[in-house]
Design a protein around this nucleic acid. Structure first.
Length: 419
DNA sequence: TCTGGGGTCCTAGGACCC
DNA sequence: TCTGGGGTCCTAGGACCC
């Protein structure tokens, strides 16, 4: 069956969430600000009409907003996460397969539906009724074209929030109404490089030889071209894969100059990240710590420090991770700078459940420590990659100790050592 | 004698997304 | 004084192995 995707996108999501709980905000220009009330991260249509840009720093616009009667809200991510869940659960009633793409977007598989437009109108009305959130729907044979359709559904008042691009003629007409940077996967840098080759519009990109694009821009851009032509390269991903990294970072409301204060901040971020990690059933054997100064203050001395710390044993234990993070911080801390931001990243995440031997949870057990010592000895004596363990597809030292220290392999370890 | 070439791993950096 | 917080994927190049 020919693929047919619908992209459902919540309109001005954070601003719409605020309105659900404060109906008087309806019809008024509303903006939502980032952490520390730094900059604008969501705008109602009325705010957009006033020319307020995404990312506009609040401190530069505070007076203007006041004059224009713009209503300003600090962000409330718990609320938005909860509202997102309600929207997604509602959408799940409208398609056999659903991919939650972001907090405010989902792809639906509508292939085989007799009247996808009517279906999407019903979907739209239901989501509004059940959650109070207005959405737009774009329908097309590829995800990239569904994105295009969605954008046009938002732009065209007469579409009533649903736009389908099923025929090639419709697709061509739609692409003519957009800029290159409106295309999913094309931002300023790539648009500039494309323009240098004379490719200045979405239609021109669509009509460029994909092989040539692949040579000059790589496989990602080649897929964009094919998808614009109606050839589906990106499939629906129903099950979101495990995270590969987890980050916790913040900009400070004011600058930090004392190491003690920075240590406190890093410890807080680390415990936050560890919490996230445990909630997702993951562990890490490697974390990154970074600090940096305020890049907007060009008159200040700039510094960006980062350090990766390997733990040896994968864990989600907050205390162990904090110790490691503070060690990392001590390596990169330089006195004399005004720090603006810091954070930690959990790298190379693994599912705790898949790690055999429960080594990670009982690393203090003498028997297990002995086995680990044996494994280290093996590594030293035979070299990495030369023993049976490596043949099992083990990539890293710590993984060798973790994933393959089951009963089966530990027996082999003893035998190898006797040789 | 023949001094190649494929494969993997790691890191850094670039580009994109919401 | 004041400018967000997350993520993903790809590529290039060097080290190393066989």
């Amino acid at each position: 069956m020919a693929p047919l995707f619908a992209l459902v996108d919540c309109n001005n999501f954070y601003a719409s969430c605020e309105r659900v709980f404060q109906p008087p905000l309806r019809g008024k220009p509303v903006v939502v600000l980032s952490n520390n009330d730094g900059c604008v991260i969501a705008r109602s249509n009325e705010a957009k009409a006033l020319g307020i840009e995404m990312g506009a720093p609040w401190h530069l616009h505070r007076d203007q907003f006041q004059k224009q009667g713009v209503i300003v809200r600090s962000s409330n991510y718990t609320l938005y996460g909860d509202m997102s869940g309600r929207v997604m659960r509602t959408l799940a009633n409208f398609a056999p397969e659903l991919e939650v793409y972001s907090i405010d977007e989902a792809f639906l598989n509508l292939s085989g539906f007799a009247d996808p437009v009517a279906h999407s109108r019903l979907l739209r009305a239901t989501v509004l009724q059940w959650t109070g959130i207005p959405v737009s729907v774009g329908i097309a044979p590829t995800k990239t074209l569904a994105k295009v359709a969605n954008r046009l559904a938002k732009k065209s008042p007469d579409s009533c929030g649903v736009m389908a691009l099923t025929s090639e003629a419709d697709q061509v007409a739609a692409l003519q109404r957009l800029e290159l940077t409106d295309i999913w996967g094309v931002a300023n840098r790539l648009a500039a490089r494309l323009a240098a080759l004379g490719i200045r519009t979405p239609l021109a990109l669509r009509d460029t030889d994909p092989k040539m694009i692949r040579t000059s821009f790589g496989v990602v851009m080649e897929r964009v071209v094919l998808e614009l032509r109606g050839q589906s390269c990106l499939s629906l991903e129903e099950h979101s894969p495990d995270k590969k990294t987890i980050m916790a970072s913040r900009s400070f409301g004011r600058t930090v100059t004392e190491e003690a204060e920075m240590r406190e901040a890093v410890a807080t971020y680390m415990s936050r990240a560890a919490e996230k990690m445990r909630r997702q059933g993951l562990v890490t054997a490697s974390i990154g710590v970074f600090v940096n100064t305020n890049r907007f203050r060009e008159q200040d001395a700039q510094y960006y420090g980062s350090q990766t710390v390997r733990l040896g044993i994968a864990t989600a234990d907050t205390a162990k991770l904090i110790r490691a993070a503070l060690y990392g911080l001590s390596r990169i801390w330089r006195p004399g700078f005004s720090y603006k931001k810091a954070g930690v990243i959990c790298l190379d995440l693994h599912q705790a459940a898949k790690l055999q031997g429960a080594l990670f949870h009982q690393a203090d057990d003498p028997g297990r420590l002995e086995l680990m010592r044996l494994m280290d000895e093996l590594n030293r004596r035979y070299g990495r990659g030369s023993i049976a363990f490596a043949a099992a597809g083990v990539k890293k030292g710590w993984a060798l100790r973790s994933e393959h220290l089951s009963a089966r392999y530990s027996t082999n370890a003893m035998e190898l050592l006797r040789v």
